[in-house]
Design a protein around this nucleic acid. Sequence first.
RNA 1: GGGCGAUUGGCUCAGUGGUUAGAGCACGCGGUUCACAUCCGCGGGGUCACUGGUUCGAAUCCAGUAUCGCCCACCA
Length: 914
Amino acid sequence: MGERQATTDGGRASSDALPKAYVPADVESAIYQRWLAADVFAPDGAGSRANPALPPFTIIQPPPNITGSLHLGHAQRTAVEDLLIRHARMRGRAALFLPGVDHASIAAQYVLDRIIATEGESRESLGRERYLERMWTFINATREVMLGQQRRLGASTDWSRLRFTMDDGSAKAVRVAFERLYRDGLAYRTEALINWCPGCRTSVSDLETIPTPETGTLWTLRYHLIDPATGEPSATETVSVATTRPETILGDTAVAVHPEDERFAAIVGRQVRIPFVGRDVPIVADDAVDRAFGTGAVKITPAHDQADYELAKRHDLPMITVLDDAAAINEAGDGYVGLDRLAARATIVADLDARGDLVGSRPHEMLIGRCQRSNDVIEPRLKTQWFLSMQPLAERALAATREGRTRIVPARFEAVWEHWLTNIRDWNLSRQLWWGHRIPAWYCPDGHVSVSSEVGGPAACAVCRRPAAELVQESDIFDTWFSSGLWPFSTLGWPDDTADLNRYYPTSVMETGHDILFFWVARMMMLGLHLTNVEPFHTIYLSGLIRDERGQRMSKTKGNVVDPLVVMDEAGADALRFAVIHGATPGQDQKFGPQKLDTGRNFANKLWNATRFVLGARPASIPADAARQAPDPAALGPVERWIRSRTAASIDAVDAAIADYQLAEVTRALYDGIWSEFCDWGLELAKVRLADAALPPAAREATWWTLVESLEVFVRLLHPVMPFVTEALWSALPHRPDDPALVIVAAWPSTAGRDRAAEAGVEAILDLVRRIRNVRVEAGVPAAAWLDARIAAPGDANALVAELLPQIERLARVRATLLDADKAKADAPGALSVVVGRLQASLEPHADPAVEARERERLSRELEVVEGRLAAARARVTDPAFIGKAPPAIVEGARRSAADLEAQAASLREKLGT
RNA sequence: GGGCGAUUGGCUCAGUGGUUAGAGCACGCGGUUCACAUCCGCGGGGUCACUGGUUCGAAUCCAGUAUCGCCCACCA
């Protein structure tokens, strides 16, 4: 299959092949090809090492819109998903990461319309068939760009299962789902008030209508009451109403007042005449009217206002549509027919003024609904459309999270989830677009409705059995989110009873941005529960949004979109992945600037060079092709035990962070573990034994195998975050015969446990080294100078210090003499004193009075600090409230720390001679 | 109008009750240490937004305030 066998051919311990710095681009692409060749992405691929006894782990990728190239937000999502998948894969789970693309009907049409407009064409000029052909050409091009970006990022998606929301499988799922929902009485067709976008010429959902603040005008105008005696409008009796949309008076069918408003009590039940259209309409009383707003009386336009629509239904008022598809006045608007809504508004205001019925106007702050896509002002309109009853579906979705079958990360979004699902309104499924799934409903000349999931439609009218030839299919298509809502199971073969559906459904984690929690996640949950009877995923992981350096949302119109490809060209995919995961606090937006990439790039380089060093430091007694072996326990020194224990600590930290979805914490733990501990201290300490020709070979071999072992663990731990550099290093490291050739399918590390005693012992020595370095600098000792040092350690620490004296010498740049524990006090005059914990050192610089003076000053400052802390510590341990109420372990800790400080202060005082 | 989030060093952010609040970047000083200058060593820098409360103990819990941001909502 691949160019390698399933296992390594033993070690290849050599640094010759590794260049001095990690250079990503060419390495990355070669590695991706190796993964593909080894067939490791598919959970059932030839290279899979999944344990069949373990449950599978499935992530269905949120399908990006087909319309364009990916941005940093996609890169972050993919990085997070891929991290989870790679981790699960290494844990031995059959890990399916299923890729896909969304047809994005309204967004795609919007983009294509603008493209063809530059060619002098339009939707209408092309016609439905040619338009759709054009769309397929368009998306076939963009799709390749997007998939290339995913590969570049290292997404370990199973390309054999790539899906598209417009492919045959999705189309079938859509038809069957709709038929089920229709039969179950949840999908229904009715005339209702919908959000109409005149620019896109389609209805849009509530979620796609963006409330936008705007300063409009609030006009006050008056209607004349009908004189009951004459049946004609009275010249004197009027009622004033306030409106921001005067053109809608053409569709007014009532005036409403509050039932308890005494100002209007006398006229409730009377009629007013609507100007221009000459219609007489009633004055009704309704609680919904706000007495304090405007004049207290409100004109009612049921066909073009949500609140008016609700009120009209309560009062059984007629509903008159006055706007057409282009939002121009239709034939109901008498003298204004054909005028655009805004032109009509101006004309009507002028005409009212001319009649003397315009009472006044003032600027008015308000929220205007605008189209998420085209930014046109949305007009509410009456239309016959398909809707989906949401309440029964929402209840099950709510139960799933309330009862813990699905968990939302971070948990605070559960409150948002609750609120939205408990106040949910029915979903308008119909779109007057062409690009998408056509609603599988057929109408017969008698108006009967037939819904069918058959490709060819129903054989006959479901009601009157008229033949299919006489039926006409609905021309509307589905809201693009309808097919998206089926995604977790349509991708696995639903509605067919497929092997994939049985094995990988329900899926594991749904990762996506918190901005589409309602658009998408809630709908997948509701449709999934209804259609498959099970929660489609057990965890919803919500990512934050990526913003630019100034905290602004990235958007094409702002021109601040960062192209992941450009970023990866500069710093590599690993660096980008590290950066976006490093900032990935669940649900929290992150700002992204180029400087954040440096951390990841440098980190990859650091690990790269650490590996180069280790490979190059192989003792001559170990053959270059030796298979990896565990270090001989009998030959381990304190340093080796410390390295192994700290490596185990890193495993624990990473495991805990992943289990809790604290992915940023994963990068932090690894950065600290690899750089600050393993490289800064582990390797430096290990160099001493590796270079000591006087030691028996077994000791040096144990040190080297310890380094190899830790490095190998770190490479595996880091692989889900930085897959490329770790894969490159994996092939350079020696392995056991049964290790796989690729780290992507290597086993996740497990810990043999910590060695707390070794950690504490070495940690104390590291503290001593740190303090010596610090003192040297403060005393102005030249960095290159070697000082004589006398080191004192109390009884039980003495042996360890003795054993690690060479390491202390190297790291602190001193020539050390270890004093007998009994005679530990003797400081030479003029020496630099170091006191840390229970260890002491005195350094003897070249005789220099200036250094001596600085040294006394330094010790006084240090004593001051120690005494301050000591005072606080004493106060605490003598406080009866503290002793009585704090847990014993805390009290004990405080006592110990007070005693240490006391000893330290005493020794400092002695050195100062006070 | 309701809800949520943020507020910690110059910048970007960790840190949900326990000694002395951390990191990266930036900054200052020093460095030809044989893995790495994409580096090494040392250092300066924070009354944890504010006010009050709970507690032996608060950046952390509670209440309120302020500023910024987001979500939801049919005052025409």
